[in-house]
Design a binder for these strands. Structure first.
Lengths: 113, 113
DNA sequence: CACATATAAAACCAACTGGTTATAGAACCG
DNA sequence: CGGTTCTATAACCAGTTGGTTTTATATGTG
C-alpha cells in the first residue's frame, strides 16, 4: 500500500465533519446540500470537505442534473483498517497483562491466605 | 468515544514518520535518539512527532537517566479500528456484488450452454 | 567541577487547513 | 429568455503543521 494513500486516508478521517459525512453516506447517496444541511457552516466549506474526501478516494461523485450525488467508497477504509489490524496484538496484549495480573493476585490469595 | 480522541488519533496516524515510529515501537521500547536514527531529519523534529503521538495517547514515556524511553500505547489504535469496523460491511458489500456477478455468470452458463 | 550525552524548548519559516464571503457556472423551470 | 437552484471557484484570513537552527536543561562520567 502506497504511503501517500494512507496519509490521505487518515488525514481525511481526522476531521469530525468529514467522519459525519461518511456516516451519512453509509446510509446511501446524498447531494451536497443534503450533506451540508446538518452542519453550521457554509456550503463552500462542505464542498471543501467533500473535495478532501474525494481526493482521498473515500467518496465518488455522480451527476444528476445540477446535483452531484456523493457515494461512499469504502475500499480505502479497508486499507486503513488493514494497517491498524497489524497492531491488534498490542492492545490485546494489554488485556492479557491485566488478566495475568488478576491471575497472580488470585493465586497469591490461595497460597497465602 | 469522544470526538476529539478520534481526531487526535487519526491526525497522528496521517504522517508517515509517525506511523514508522509506531511500527518501531511495536518491537519494543526505544529512546528518542534510537527513534530518530532512521530519519533524515533533526532530533527536535522527531521530538515534535513524539509529542504529537504522546498527546494522542499513542505512546507513553518513561525516565531512564537522561533518556526518555517511549513505549507503544495501543488502546487508542483500537478506538480507531472500532470506528472503522462500523464500515466493514460497506467494503465487504463490494466483494459481495462481485460474488453475485460471478454467480450470475456461472448460473447463465448452466442454464444456457 | 568540567564535559559529554540525551532531550526539550524557543524562535522562526513556508506550506497547509478550515473556515469565511462573494462570484461564477451549469442545469432546470416558467 | 429570465430567474432559481445546486455546486464550484476565487480570494482572503487566522491558526496549525512540519521542518529548521540555536539554546537550554538534566543527567551521568572523568
Amino acid at each position: 500500500m502506497s504511503v501517500d494513500v494512507l496519509d490521505a486516508t487518515f488525514a481525511a478521517l481526522a476531521d469530525p465533519t468529514r467522519r459525519a459525512i461518511l456516516a451519512r453516506l453509509a446510509e446511501g447517496e446524498a447531494t451536497v446540500t443534503e450533506l451540508a444541511a446538518p452542519f453550521a457552516m457554509s456550503q463552500p466549506a462542505v464542498s471543501k470537505h467533500l473535495r478532501v474526501l474525494e481526493h482521498a478516494g473515500l467518496i465518488s461523485r455522480g451527476r444528476d442534473a445540477q446535483r452531484r450525488p456523493c457515494r461512499l467508497e469504502a475500499a480505502r477504509l479497508k486499507n486503513a483498517m488493514d494497517w491498524l489490524a497489524d497492531y491488534r496484538g498490542y492492545w490485546e496484549e494489554s488485556y492479557q497483562r491485566l488478566d495475568d495480573l488478576l491471575g497472580e493476585l488470585d493465586a497469591g490469595q490461595e497460597e497465602a491466605p
